[in-house]
């Protein structure tokens, strides 16, 4: 369970928040011209990385404001929280804790079936 620091209200329990999925997804331009495949990409497909992930949260039982977050999905560690109009922090600012795309971090994975 996460402790999330709302940029407007401060640290609060995760149960006050709702997750909004991937952040920085842009609706494609030229909705009349683009193909079904491009529409499908926009409607259905989202990144699903193991490791560093940009995502949105909303403080639904608090100030009801949206904000962005960088979280490590392999450990659930929250690395940075920033407001919607702040620039997207580059990936190189953060340490990636896994060596291979589907590897396990040394601490915090919860997976005991894999030899580290």
């Amino acid at each position: 369970m996460l402790l999330i620091e709302c940029p407007y209200c401060g640290p609060r329990d995760q149960s006050e928040f709702s997750n909004g999925g991937e952040a920085h997804v842009k609706r494609p331009d030229g909705s009349q011209e683009i193909s079904d495949r491009e529409w499908g990409e926009y409607v259905f497909i989202r990144s699903n990385p193991k490791g560093l992930f940009y995502e949105r949260w909303v403080h639904s039982h608090g100030c009801r404001k949206w904000f962005n977050c960088v979280r490590d999905t392999s450990t659930d560690e929250i690395l940075k929280i920033y407001k919607l109009d702040d620039p997207k922090p580059p990936l190189k600012d953060f340490e990636n804790k896994i060596q291979t795309p589907s590897g396990e971090p040394d601490v915090g994975s919860g997976n005991f079936t894999v030899k580290k």
């Binding site: 369970m1 996460l2 995760q14 149960s15 193991k50 392999s74 915090g108 994975s109």
Partner: peptide, 13 residues
């Protein structure tokens, strides 16, 4: 859980 994660434990809530 409501959020994406690869940690094989899940939230207590």
């Amino acid at each position: 859980d409501s959020y994406n994660s690869f940690t094989q434990r899940g939230g207590f809530n």
